[in-house]
């Protein structure tokens, strides 16, 4: 088929009429575009592909100097071993608890404060908001030490609290949602007042549904943030009972040889762990896109 096409392309070039030239140009343009897209897709997919095949290799095969692109022997048992060695079940539960609780609490805080900054009138509102925004200029790493000292003095070390509380308030999310709330016309609020709603009911029945794409985006980002956090959990709660998945994966697969890591097992564990996030993205893709495109249009 491609040969025929190529011949056709060459043939049409030989004819050299304007019309055919235009058509050929179009086809060539398409070929270039698709080649580029395919290349990009390969670059994006490759790490995932590598993760999957690595997770299916045996350790000796993995250590071959010339890596194989397809496992010689498919070791499905890696997945079972990974699950058992790393006590993945416990890591999952820990991460779920931290992720879900912190996402829910964070959403409540974000929605309420965004509502206050967008809708309620109180003294010093704008000053307070400016002060909050100013904290965004300090890089997060600078907080690590002060936060560490604070939670240590609170006696929160090695608890769920320490994993959840310090990151509940996100100025960025509040800012994002406030801007979204501000785009909702004032008349809707007045109309809702005439229709007999309280502030909180207006928030629940009108503002949240209208800002839903943004709220879902925030949920996803927060969830992924909790899932991926590494440094802070390692510092403050890296014990058996509270260890989160990222740290669990890092430490659980050391082999009998000191310092050596059983990478295929680790890869299998990583694949297991990535799966829920993958599902989240597949199912909520529509909302993520909506959130992005909507904020783009409204400006």
């Amino acid at each position: 088929m491609t040969d025929q096409k190529n011949i056709a392309v060459m043939h049409s070039k030989n004819l050299n009429t304007e019309k055919v030239k235009g058509k050929a140009g179009k086809i060539i343009g398409k070929i270039i575009v698709y080649a580029f897209l395919i290349l990009m897709a390969i670059i994006v997919v490759f790490p995932f592909y590598w993760m999957i095949i690595s997770s299916l290799k045996s350790l000796p095969e993995y250590k071959l100097p010339n890596p194989t692109f397809w496992p010689k022997q498919i070791m499905l048992s890696n997945y079972i071993n990974a699950f058992n060695t790393a006590s993945l079940g416990k890591l999952f539960v820990n991460t779920m608890i931290v992720g879900i609780v912190s996402t829910i609490l964070s959403l409540v805080i974000t929605v309420l404060s965004a509502f206050a900054f967008a809708r309620l009138e109180f003294k010093g509102r704008d000053t307070l908001f400016a002060a909050l925004l100013a904290t965004m200029m300090i890089p997060g790493e600078l907080f690590t030490i002060t936060n560490y000292i604070t939670v240590y003095q609170f006696g929160w070390m090695k608890t769920y609290t320490v994993l959840i509380v310090p990151f509940l308030v996100s100025v960025f999310y509040i800012y994002l949602l406030r801007q979204n709330f501000l785009q909702i016309p004032n008349e809707l609020y007045l109309a809702a007042k005439v229709d007999g709603t309280s502030d909180i009911k207006y928030l629940w029945k009108v503002m949240i549904p209208l800002a839903l794409p943004t709220i879902i985006s925030i949920t996803i980002l927060k969830m992924m943030g909790a899932w991926n956090s590494y440094i802070w959990p390692r510092l403050v709660a890296n014990d058996e009972n509270h260890r989160l998945i990222t740290n669990g994966l890092r430490t659980a697969f050391e082999t009998t040889v000191a310092g050596e890591v059983d990478y295929p097992l680790q890869m299998a564990a990583v694949a297991i762990v990535s799966f829920p996030l993958f599902l989240v993205f597949v199912f909520l893709r529509k909302y993520i896109m909506k959130g992005v495109s909507r904020s783009g249009i409204k400006g």
Binding site: L188, A192, V194, L210
Partner: peptide, 11 residues
């Protein structure tokens, strides 16, 4: 009350 721009709940 009917508002000038109607203020219907869009969702």
């Amino acid at each position: 009350l009917v508002f000038q721009n109607y203020a219907l709940y869009p969702h």
